[in-house]
Computed example of a mutant assay.
Amino acid sequence: MRILLLGGTWFLGRAIAQRALLSGHDVTTFNRGRSAPDLHGIAVVRGDRTDEDDVRRLASHGPWDVVVDTSASEMAPYQVQAAARMLAGVADRYVYLSTVNAYTGWPHEPLDESSPTYYAPPNSGRDFGAEQGTTIHYGMQKAGCENAVRDAFGEYATILRPGVILGPGEYVGRLPWWLRRSERGGAILAPGRPVQSIQPVDVRDVAAFALDAPLGDFNVAAPQGRATMGDFLTACLEATGGRGRLVWAPDGLLKKFGVREWTEMPLWRTAHGAWAVDSRRAVGAGLSCRPLEQTVADTWAWLVSGQEPVKHPRWDDHGIDSEKEQKILAVLG
C-alpha cells in the first residue's frame, strides 16, 4: 500500500511511520523538517501544508492509496480543506486523526459515535467559535477539520477520535510526569479513587488501527472498565522500582486546594463522561489495545534510555508542585 503521511516525525506520526514500514508499505512523509528527523526508508517531501504551492508540489509525487493526517492539530478548517481538496485527485481515501473533544458532550456525558459533535463549516477560520471559550473553541475547530476532510473525500474519509494517547515518545508529559514522580518515591499524592476506570490508549495501538481502519467514524480508546487509576499508578511504581507509597486524596480535598484537573494531577478528571467513551465500534473493526501496564513499562524504558520527546510547551503544564503536594499530604496524615 502507498501511504502519504502528513507529519510522521514525532509521537503518533512517528509510530504510524514505524508501523507502516514494518508492515512493508511504501511511505511518503510531508512535513517541514523542523521537529525531528524522518525514519530511514521513507520518501520525504519537505514543505508547509498551508502553502498552496508546496501542497501542489506534494501532489505531483502521488498517487497514494491513503492519506493519514496527524499534523493538523494547529490547523484551521479552511487550511485542512484546501490541502485535502488538492490531494483528493491523487489519493483514494483520507484518515484524519481528530479527538473526542469534537463531541459537544465531552467530558460531561458518555459518548459513542452517534453522539452529537460541534459544528463548524469546512471553510471556517481559526477564530470561528473563539467567543465560546477555549475548550469549546478547540472542539469546534476539530469538528470543522473533520468536515473539511469530508468535504474533499466524501464517503472515503475515516475520522478517528482518540482520547488520551500514552506511550514511548509522548511529548505532552502526562505519563512521564507520573513515572518521574514514582521514581522519587516517598508518599505520593494520588488523585480521586483507585477504582476510577480510565481509558488511555497506547500510541502504537492507535498507529496500527490508523493504517487498518475502515471508512467511517471511530472512537479510539481502551475498552471501558479494563483499567483503573489504581492500576495505572501501581504500574508506575512497579516500573520505576516500587519505592513510593500512594496516598489517595478525595476529589473534594483536591478541589479545595485548587488542584487543576487533567494537568496538575495528570489523567485526573471528575466529569462524568471523561472516561466513558464507547470504543466498541473500533474494537469490532480491529482496534487492539495492549495492557496499560505494558504501555507504562515501555514508556519508562524509553525515558531511562536517554531519548527525549520533541519539545512542546504542554510538557511544562503537567505535574503538581512538590510544596503543594506536601501540604495536601499533611492534611491526609
Rank of each mutant, 00 (worst) to 15 (best):
L58K: 06
R260M: 08
P110Q: 04
W248D: 11
L166Q: 12
S279Q: 10
F128I: 01
Q81M: 12
G225K: 04
D231H: 13
D298N: 12
V220E: 07
C145T: 10
G105K: 02
M265I: 03
I42Y: 05
W248C: 03
L12N: 02
R174V: 06
S124P: 04
V66M: 03
R314C: 11
D231F: 11
G8M: 09
L189M: 06
A152V: 01
L97E: 13
F257K: 11
A213T: 01
D202W: 04
N219S: 05
R93V: 08
V310Y: 10
N31D: 11
L6T: 02
G216A: 06
T99I: 08
G273I: 00
F218V: 13
P116M: 10
I328Q: 04
A274Q: 07
Q199K: 09
S35F: 13
G273L: 02
Y119K: 07
E323H: 13
F257H: 15
R2I: 00
W275C: 08
T117L: 08
R193G: 12
A239C: 00
V45Q: 14
F128G: 14
L21T: 07
S60R: 15
F209Q: 08
H318S: 07
G242F: 10
G167P: 11
G144V: 01
A84Y: 08
E109R: 09
T99D: 07
P291D: 04
L253R: 02
L211W: 11
T234N: 14
A222I: 07
D217E: 14
T99S: 15
G333Q: 14
R290L: 00
G241L: 05
L287A: 00
H25N: 13
L254H: 03
N147Y: 06
T299F: 11
F11P: 10
P162A: 01
L111K: 00
T29H: 06
W248P: 03
H272D: 14
D251K: 00
L253N: 00
A91H: 03
A222W: 10
R180T: 06
P107Q: 06
P122L: 05
A76Y: 14
Y118V: 02
Q132M: 15
Y171L: 12
L22C: 13
P63R: 02
G167A: 02
V90E: 05
A84Q: 01
T158R: 07
E131P: 09
Y171G: 05
